[in-house]
Amino acid sequence: MSILHTVNKSPFEKSSLDSCLKYAKGGSAVLLYEDGVYAALKGTNMEDKVKSAAQGIKFYVLGPDLKARGIADDRVIDGIAIVDYAGFVDLSVESDKVSAWV
């Protein structure tokens, strides 16, 4: 896998996800964590943007951060994979490099 992009800011408050998606190339991966997990929520005004980006990029979201914020798994956009901390580590190790959009 090429680059793992990580986003930890709310897409409604900061432009981190927008920046990330501008530079994330097809075949790379995006991991949403901390307030970044709100981008994975269904039914928001960000959903279309995330869904269209997800056609070329694999999206992951950190489960413990979803749970902390009260977001049940069935509120997560279909196709986004929920991972735990070990999964986060695996993704980092599998990737050539990590780009953190803080």
Partner: peptide, 9 residues
């Protein structure tokens, strides 16, 4: 938001 569970973080 309802159902917040923070043990994991």
């Amino acid at each position: 938001k309802k159902d917040q569970e923070t043990a994991g973080i």
